[in-house]
């Protein structure tokens, strides 16, 4: 692949998804984009680069971006966020939302579904406390490919062994050959939809808590700030944000502040209009 094509892919992927591909990742482009080139019967990545700049190539561009996403995930990843959700956030929500009995959760880069399904499991395990409550888990990702897998809810033996306690595996999954299929009741708790974090979020509605984990790390500072500020706008004053282990709001925005003793968990900061007004 020539230099121009490489630069084209980096600019294209950045513009469409916010993902910053460092140029030394040229080898990654080769292995991930060749299947797309082959699908369109193009000989190499230079031809694909040219084709993707022609009018009417929206679907091809989408496939290029999809191919460049990193989708690693596992059940109960890092465990702490799920404990915090159960022990810190959920009790507050049960108290504060007692009138409406309605909670909305957003898994903002859900990959193959392990994150929203882990949340569904936490909620199921919470049991009678939530009887009569309506809980929406909205799970979104830019990648159509992962969403298809997430909706299917079928995982390999390797995937279910990473993070999922055995008692929860036998309780909430059915064995299907060498695969494991999630319980339809859990599947029904999550609604999946395609959504690009660069897009306007308000149409998704308001959420009580947003899980935005291990995706901001791939964005540049400016994009991180924009996404975080918009997220603040669709959370109520007592809403929460959960980031991944290597992510922070520090230096990005003052619309969120970390909660003492709750690593990775954030609440609305002084920078929010609502807090300022009160």
């Amino acid at each position: 692949m020539n230099k121009e094509s490489l630069a084209h892919y980096c600019a294209l992927v950045k513009k469409e998804s916010g993902l910053v591909l460092s140029e030394e990742k040229g080898y990654l482009l080769e292995s991930r984009l060749m299947p797309v080139a082959r699908k369109y019967k193009l000989a190499d990545l230079d031809e694909l680069a040219t084709a993707s700049q022609k009018a009417g190539s929206t679907e091809m561009v989408r496939e290029i971006v999809d191919a460049m996403t990193t989708n690693e995930s596992f059940f109960f990843r890092d465990i702490t966020p799920f404990d915090q959700f159960r022990d810190y956030v959920l009790p507050k929500l049960i108290e504060n939302r007692g009138d409406k009995k309605h909670i909305r959760i957003w898994s903002a880069a859900c990959s193959n579904g392990q994150e929203p399904y882990s949340l569904a499991i936490v909620l199921k395990e919470a049991g009678p406390k939530l009887a009569g409550w309506r809980i929406d888990i909205v799970a979104t990702d830019i990648s159509r490919e992962v969403l298809t897998r997430a909706k299917a809810g079928v995982y390999s033996q390797f995937e279910v062994q990473r993070g999922l306690p055995i008692t929860l595996l036998v309780k909430y999954f059915k064995q299907d050959g060498d695969k494991w299929r999630i319980d339809p009741a859990l599947r029904a708790m999550v609604s999946f939809q395609e959504f690009n974090l660069l897009d306007e979020m308000r149409a998704l509605g308001k959420f009580d808590i947003i899980f935005c984990r291990n995706v901001l790390i791939y964005f540049d500072q400016e994009t991180k700030t924009m996404v975080l500020n918009r997220m603040s706008g669709i959370l109520p004053p007592d809403g929460h944000l959960v980031l991944g282990g290597a992510e922070t709001v520090l230096g990005m925005t003052d619309k969120f502040v970390s909660i003492k003793g709750q690593r990775g968990l954030y609440e609305q900061g002084a920078g929010t209009p609502i807090a300022k007004a009160s």
């Binding site: 033996q157 390797f158 062994q161 990473r162 055995i166 008692t167 595996l169 036998v170 064995q175 060498d178």
Partner: peptide, 30 residues
Amino acid sequence: NDIEHIQEAIAEGANEYIMKPFDSEIIQSK
């Protein structure tokens, strides 16, 4: 690796269950 064996193991007091093949990551995670 079938669910019947796993359930029997839990019933007899096993704390966790690794299905072979395993690697160091799975051992660590469990």
